[in-house]
Nucleic acid binder design. Structure first.
Lengths: 99, 99
DNA sequence: TGCATAACTTTGCAGAACAAAGTATTTTGA
DNA sequence: TCAAAATACTTTGTTCTGCAAAGTTATGCA
């Protein structure tokens, strides 16, 4: 059990970050507003959750203009997808502990 | 997605509490020392995680003597098992979001 | 001219998690 | 017999998080 716990990735160890990664695991280039809406987060709150994910290079962003308004979109990197999968595997292992 | 998020139970929303419930979901009457050891927690830390679980009546305890030493053992209540399962179902739903 | 929108950053606070130390009782070992 | 250990906590104090709310910059629209 101890060794499973160490395999849980602290960066993903939060409901909102799990949510972000769940979305980005299957949808490339999701925009800021959509993420905010889906997860019911305030502007600042979403930014503060994206920061550690970006810092770990688990997500990347693209800034573009739609019409003439700026738009930021996010996608999970390959490393992000791998790390997320590893986290979920550890989670699953832990939840099945003892069975 | 929003409605899934609200189904996540805040009481379980922590790696150590997930660990505790994973153990108690399949093992009745696990003693304090074993939980502490398995989860790599300090005395005080385990106590502080058990408290909200007890308060929610998700776990119950039994105090007895083994030899002549006191021993506290814990088990998940029926309500605890149900709530935990609901939490895991919501988690799974969230992680599969978009697929 | 002024309000709106997008995407943040900054600020400040309240609550959580943690380690470490303290407590009570009993037991074991030198 | 006297000190140290074990069980199961509680208390204390600090650090870390997460959050809302407000501020910021750069357009866009009416």
């Amino acid at each position: 059990m101890k060794d499973i716990l160490t395999q849980l990735n602290p960066v993903f160890d939060h409901r909102n970050r799990l949510g972000i990664m769940s979305i980005l695991a299957v949808n490339d280039w999701v925009d800021y507003g959509t993420l905010k809406e889906l997860l019911n987060l305030t502007d600042g709150n979403l930014a503060s959750h994206m920061k550690p994910l970006e810092a770990a290079e688990y997500v990347e962003y693209r800034k573009q203009f739609v019409g003439r308004r700026p738009q930021t979109t996010y996608a999970a990197t390959a490393a992000g997808k791998t790390a997320f999968k590893a986290h979920l595997d550890a989670l699953e292992l832990m939840l099945k502990f003892g069975k």
